[in-house]
Design a protein around this nucleic acid. Structure first.
Length: 559
DNA sequence: TTGACCACGTA
DNA sequence: CGTACGTGGTCAAC
């Protein structure tokens, strides 16, 4: 059993005069057992950081956030919420649920809601020892889960003891479940810490450049509308924000479309000038409403950093998510993402990550061999005896469940030449169609039955097919997310001493803010981190490639 | 106020 | 080809 140091944060309190007092924090494990005020935590945290102990918290948002905000580096962590999401699937991962799962308690016996409201407190916990966070039925007290039980130092220590024992039970389960789960928990826990750092640091922007791009698109809405409506005299009353109204407008100029979506309208750009005007209006309207002056004001601090909340995994296959527009920033805004004075970006993205991951998770020898090429699709095309474009569509269709166009014919070749890889995808697909859960290569449980409505498998063929595609894709997308996080965690650990900070994670791409004089060295470490991650995660069986560049602005990256 | 749907940006 | 996410708009139902 590794050395764990459990950290819990008590409720924020008021002192005797009613002024806000610093919350108290308990640290238990690794030879420590103490309670300290939150504002004295940094000194104690450095003490733990100096050992090889692994931090344990209910969640990074609770446990890692105060350390990150205090500028304390965090080397190793066990995040109970992330571990629970991996082991049990889904996104719900509060202490009550994680504890119950780790202890092998039937989730159905979980107290109705761990809300901590009056009914909860009255019901069922009268007979329990008020000083014990664990009820006689084995579950955690609802008021403890709600965060307002640990009001004394003794209770806070008891709460930390519970956390420590929860992590130890999870560790045993992870070891028993599969060969990679403990490593995946470590990596996911590091990703959760990274999320706190991403939130804390923010993405450096050039405010002047941003305003130059956004400003001209943020004029009076009436003027934007008028530029479109000028093409259709007599229909100035059209509400361009209402798709039904737009469809009516198009009908009036002889364009009959089932929907007004961009890819539908693009076929009509030469039919009537209102169509390109409308598409241009949509793009500007998007910037004005979503990425306009209000967004800049709300999300970009006085230090010219764009901040949003980050999560280490979504509720599905396990990709990272970001709020505040950080994950869907339109390309036209990228020139405004700029390194701050004295700094540069190291920008790196993984090439053809999903087919390379397919090679690893399936172990298909011929497909693994194809990863030796810089362009994986070239040897695949050669082996199938088809054009590269055809091979690419075939591989993507196999991973995503597409059946349209030329995919079907090329898939036959894949089944013949790469039977192991295709069989894995087919097995995932049928498990999904049966409503069964699948596990990713790293061990994340991905439920399919609860997704996309509650219909029973077999009741709705379209829904079954959708679950099949979802499961087929989840084992690839999920494993790619795991590999990406292992890479990011390695980069974070090996470049921190040079002042490098990861400031953006975009599924297969890293943006690292680094003092200019260390950019070259960080770029080299990024590539070495990929080799290390590939060796640890994939046993070196497949080759992974990265395109690593040093740029001052995100938009300078050529790809 | 809330949820469904559309639309669209990113990978 | 398809999967996922977050966001903001309208509309209908409260």
């Amino acid at each position: 059993m590794p050395e764990f140091a459990a950290l819990v944060v008590g409720p924020s309190a008021a002192d005797a005069w009613g002024a806000p007092a610093s919350p108290r924090v308990a640290i238990v494990g690794d030879g420590l057992r103490r309670v300290v005020p939150l504002d004295e935590l940094p000194g104690h945290a450095r003490e733990v950081g100096a050992t090889s102990a692994r931090w344990v918290w209910w969640s990074a948002a609770e446990g890692a956030r105060p350390l990150v905000d205090a500028g304390i580096g965090i080397a190793r962590a066990w995040d109970v919420a992330e571990a629970h999401r991996l082991l049990a699937g889904g996104w719900e991962a509060g202490p009550g649920l994680a504890w119950a799962a780790a202890r092998g308690l039937d989730p159905a016996t979980l107290p109705e809601r761990h809300r901590g409201d009056l009914l909860d407190l009255l019901g069922g916990e009268d007979d329990d020892d008020p000083e014990n966070p664990v009820r006689r039925d084995g579950h955690l007290r609802a008021d403890a889960v709600a965060g307002d039980w640990a009001v004394t130092d003794d209770r806070l220590l008891a709460w930390a003891d519970v956390l420590l024992s929860c992590a130890q039970a999870q560790h045993e389960r992870a070891e028993a479940l599969g060969p990679r789960l403990v490593a995946t928990v470590h990596s996911e826990s590091a990703a959760a810490v990274l999320c706190e750092e991403l939130r804390h640091d923010g993405l450096p922007v050039d405010r002047t450049a941003l305003l130059d791009i956004v400003g001209p698109m943020c004029g009076p809405p009436a003027e934007r509308d008028a530029a479109v409506l000028a093409h259709v005299p007599g229909r100035e009353g059209t509400d361009l924000r209402n798709p039904a109204s737009v469809r009516e407008l198009l009908g009036a100029v002889g364009i009959d479309v089932p929907s007004t979506r961009k890819h539908v309208l693009e076929a009509y750009v030469h039919v009537h000038p209102v169509v390109p005007a409308l598409l241009h209006w949509r793009a500007e309207e998007r910037i004005a409403t979503t990425y306009g002056l209000r967004w800049i004001d709300e999300h970009i601090g006085p230090d010219d950093r764009l901040r949003g909340e980050w999560r280490a995994c979504d509720g599905g296959a396990g990709r990272m998510t970001a709020a505040g527009g950080l994950h869907n920033l339109p390309a036209v805004l990228r020139p405004a993402v700029a390194a701050h004075p004295g700094h540069l970006f190291v920008r790196a993205d993984l090439g053809q990550i999903e087919p390379r991951v397919l090679a690893v998770v399936s172990g298909d020898p011929a497909f693994v061999a194809a990863t030796r090429a810089d362009d994986l699709y070239a040897p695949v095309a050669e082996r199938l005896g088809v054009e590269r474009a055809v091979a690419k569509v075939a591989v993507l269709s196999a991973m995503y469940g597409g059946r349209a166009g030329q995919a079907a014919a090329a898939l036959q070749g894949l089944e013949r030449e790469y039977p192991v890889a295709i069989r894995l995808l087919e097995e995932a697909s049928s498990a999904g169609m049966r409503g069964e859960s699948v596990r990713t290569y790293g061990g994340r449980l991905v439920p399919t039955a609860r997704l996309m409505g509650g219909d029973r498998p077999g009741a709705n063929p379209q829904l079954d097919a959708a679950r099949g595609r979802f499961a087929r894709n989840a084992i690839i997308q999920g494993a790619a997310a795991e590999f990406f996080k292992a890479w990011a965690a390695t980069v974070r650990a090996t470049t921190a001493h040079l002042g490098a900070r990861i400031v953006l994670c975009l599924h297969d791409e890293l943006l690292i803010h680094v003092p200019a004089e260390h950019a070259q060295q960080v770029a080299a470490l990024v590539d070495r981190a990929l080799e290390d991650a590939a060796r640890r995660w994939a046993g070196g069986r497949a080759r992974f490639v990265t395109d690593t560049q040093i740029v001052a602005r995100w938009s300078e990256a050529k790809g």
